[in-house]
Amino acid sequence: MALDSAPVLEAKNISVEFGGLKAVEDVSFDIPDRSVVSLIGPNGAGKTTFFNVLTGLYKPTSGFVIYNGEDITGVVPHKIAEKGVARTFQNIRLFGLMTAEENVMVAMHSHLKAGIIGTIIGSPLQRREEREAREEARALLTFVGIGKTAMEFARNLSYGDQRRLEVARALALRPKVLLLDEPTAGMNPQESAVFVDFVHKVRDEKNLAILLIEHDMSVVMKVSERITVLDRGMKIAEGSPADIKSNPRVIEAYLGKSAEVNK
């Protein structure tokens, strides 16, 4: 278990208000290095808002985000991404009219150095960089299992492949933390089961920590080392999957309700 390692990303007393509406209220949370942790909660619990705070899209009303010991609260999104916090989106947000390979290469933007002049004249440095970036992109696509689709437009890929492409694109940032926002949404049970192994493979081979927002309880229970439960913007429980399963507050707030909905 990687839970006892030092936190790579920490959120301290985060609150987010939208004109008086408290979307997230005083939530503290940390992601230990090389762990797989999950954030669950009923719809509207503030999970995605919390995600958006971690990636710099929203500035928290109060509280801090610490990444690798550095305060990154309110830092612009592309800087946070560059530092190594990558994410995928609940509603897939690929660059539809670019090839899978190009999608991955966009995320390498901050690692590449070629400037305008170097690109126009095609300097040896720029060419080597492009070639290496392309190779890395291909390798990432193969890693997530869609190596054959490199030259296809992202919008033409199947739904599952698009999800995988989003992961490949996020990995191109060479992140230390990968945030997955409902990655199994729209997947069938078999695909979800494969996904659990995939998450562990990503964590082990890319040496990063993973935070998931997930609705599918079977996935959450199998994949997570620790689960945090949000309800109405507040953290109501945190612990191992077994603890969460038997926690009465969670059952009341989430699981019971969810079971009804699923019928």
Partner: peptide, 16 residues
Amino acid sequence: LAIREDELAASMMGVP
């Protein structure tokens, strides 16, 4: 092109 396609996603992928 990434900005043309999806500005928000582009910024999340480290494009200033």
